[in-house]
Computed example of a mutant assay.
Amino acid sequence: MADTTAPDAAPDLLYSETENELRAAVRALLSERATPAKILSRVEGDRPHDPALWQTLAVETGTAGLLVPEQWGGQGATHREVAVVLEELGRTVAPTPYLTCAVLAAQMLLGCDSARPAVVGHLRELASGESVHVPAIPLTTAPTAEPNPVVRDLGGGVLEGTITGVADAVAADVLLVLADSGLHAVAASAAVITPRTSLDLTRPLATVQLKGARGVLLAGPRTGRSAVSRALLTGSGLLASEQLGLAEWCLAETALYSKQRHQFNRPVGSFQAVKHRLAQLWLEVASARAAARSAADALATASPGASLAVAVAQSYCAQVAVHAAEECIQLHGGIAMTWEHPAHLYLKRAKADVLALGAPGRHRETVAGLMALPAP
């Protein structure tokens, strides 16, 4: 007998009214508090993180706890709402620990046993914006990488080890550390955090060294590794939304500039060569939007195809963001080569994001494996 079961409905990737309202609130905040001039001023002073901006974004706007259920002090929202926030943060390359705290750290804690009072306590602190939780893992770790603890538990939760390439560690109040005994919460003040020179000045990296620091056990080895893997998958999928926002800003600013800048008594945007480049970029950004929204929706609905949607989104959106930033600099001409123009911040963020949470090549390998596609 033929199967008459109706196929699953296609996901609705359009933005909901709630998502549009959230976007408007975040955009209004960032347009006032995260202007290019203010961001450049902070990175010049080697203090990119703006605690006042984070306080408003995380606490007053309530975005820090979007993924945290209401019973633990969060908003009980989905990955789709978080994706909207990341799009707006990508538009401004705002130097906030949102990806590391509200996404990666929140997902790690949600993957732990909620019967442990310590887990619920940290979830409440994160959701309220009371403290910034940051995963002590290299930012370049891919979702498909097997979590390999480099930190040893000397006994009784006393930890020792060194983790390199940790994003936003300098802004952390609590570090989530995967040791051989499981996942631990460690006060940032108990670790030696050494800032490193990073390409992306708005998302600083650091080396975290633990020398006898005492941690609070949140999950055993197996559960801890599972929580980290799930967080990496979520972070990778939602990073595509940040890359989408970055690409949209570059496209919009470049199109606007091409109308204002004149050569030979004509707007440079009227030249056919410029039109073709902007049209191609528009097509790429539109496709990136579909891929990023698909990944966010798959994560929000816990779709069986979430791993594939994330790999597709990240393998595509990362390169679109770089192309958009490169076109922004080239089509702006000489002004974009100056430090005063923010274009270089977008190019550096795009280039750094290519390596964050797995390079595009790594994600393409994931797609090939999931789809059983033979390598050439």
Rank of each mutant, 00 (worst) to 15 (best):
A2V: 12
A10V: 12
A10W: 08
L13V: 07
E19I: 06
A25I: 06
A28G: 13
L30W: 02
R33M: 13
A37V: 09
I39G: 02
S41V: 02
G62V: 03
G74V: 03
R80W: 06
V85E: 05
E87N: 08
P95F: 00
V103A: 04
L104N: 01
G111C: 00
P117C: 09
G121S: 10
H122Y: 05
S131D: 10
L139G: 12
L139H: 07
E146V: 11
N148D: 15
V151I: 15
L154A: 12
T164I: 09
T164A: 14
A167V: 06
D173K: 08
V174Y: 02
G182L: 06
A185M: 02
R196H: 09
R203P: 04
L205Q: 04
T207E: 12
R214G: 02
V216A: 10
R225I: 00
V228Q: 00
S229P: 02
A231I: 02
E242I: 02
A255Q: 11
L256R: 14
K259E: 15
R261G: 07
R277S: 09
L281I: 03
L283Q: 15
A291W: 00
A292E: 04
S294G: 14
A300K: 08
S303C: 14
V310K: 03
A311I: 01
V312E: 15
A318T: 01
V320C: 10
H323V: 09
C328R: 09
Q330P: 05
A336S: 13
A343D: 14
Y346I: 06
A352R: 01
G358L: 03
A359N: 06
